[in-house]
């Protein structure tokens, strides 16, 4: 590695630190990947093996052939529920944010401050009543239960309002002269100029919902309706003792879709964290 114009001694400590923390971050992930290619006997051994002597894809094959492990269905459920929920959040929150940012109506300020106060109330408060509602609507074990509760995302409205307020008013006025109504101004002026904020919100709502555990645990109960994180947790409770490499293979396979999303959108995600103050969870 050529260090060029950067003087090594000044930054030696930084390099050592970065290498160390890089190893610490990579280590658990690489152990999971590496041991997922081992046999069960090889994993249950002391001292532990880091590299498989004879790599085998047996655990991956088992993952896709066990009757009570349905990664395909769980992934499908997770994707449908997550895409549906993200779409619902954006469809519901962007117009509301526009109204709060730009339209004059009685109660605008009061309503908005009341909404902000509700951010303080933790999600646990609504769990039981919403669970009972899902039960009464016969929505348990359905996509509806995974898509609609939480779609009125107050934080999303707050965030989008901030960005919509930054769009210069003159642009909206120009659109009015061109004969645009409120919908036109929202759709052709405000939204196109706020794509960064809208996509960032969309990405974090997506990641957060895809990885959610508590709500899907309580509103799904059959093998075919579980989401990926819930499926993994069930797999762990039934197989951890007998077949560890398969559990690790499940963790690896379930992480791949999110990792691909992350690699594709890495710049947007990294910028989005500071833009939105959201972390993807």
């Amino acid at each position: 590695m050529s260090l060029g114009k950067i003087s090594l001694p000044n930054y030696l400590g930084t390099y050592i630190f970065l290498i160390a923390i890089g190893i610490l971050v990579l280590f658990p992930l690489s152990i999971a990947v590496s041991q997922s290619f081992m046999t069960n006997q090889e994993v249950n051994r002391w001292p532990p093996k880091i590299i498989p002597t004879e790599p085998t894809i047996e655990s991956y094959r088992a993952l896709f052939t066990q009757q009570d492990i349905r990664l395909d269905l769980w992934l499908r459920n997770s994707l449908i529920a997550t895409i549906g929920h993200t779409a619902a959040v954006l469809v519901i929150c962007t117009p509301a944010a526009y109204a709060f940012a730009r339209l004059q109506f009685p109660g605008n300020k009061i309503l908005f401050s009341l909404l902000l106060v509700t951010i303080m109330i933790p999600g646990q408060v609504t769990l039981i009543p919403n669970y009972m509602l899902m039960r009464d609507l016969k929505w348990l074990d359905s996509y509806n239960a995974l898509i609609f509760p939480g779609a009125a995302n107050v934080f999303g409205v707050f965030l989008l309002r901030q960005f919509f307020m930054q769009v210069p008013r003159e642009l909206e006025e120009a659109a009015v002269l061109d004969g645009c109504g409120y919908l036109g101004r929202f759709w052709h002026v405000i939204l196109p100029l706020s794509t960064n904020a809208v996509t960032a919100l969309g990405i974090f709502v997506f990641l957060g919902h895809f990885n959610d555990l508590f709500w899907p645990i309580i509103v799904t109960s059959t093998l075919a309706t579980r989401t990926l994180p819930v499926g993994l947790s069930i797999m762990q409770s039934s197989y951890a003792g007998q077949y560890r490499p398969m559990i690790l293979a499940g963790a690896v396979v379930s992480t791949l879709p999110v990792l691909i999303v992350y690699i594709i959108f890495q710049r947007r995600i990294i910028q989005g964290v500071t833009l939105t103050g959201m972390g993807g969870r």
Binding site: P28, L213, S233, L259, G280
Partner: peptide, 30 residues
Amino acid sequence: RPVRGAGFMRVFLYIPQILSAGAMGLIWNW
């Protein structure tokens, strides 16, 4: 700091954060 690979490390060090509680839990349980 102006070190090589700093941009890559920002992206790389964020990777654990994108894991689901499910995947993370399975790995750390082991």
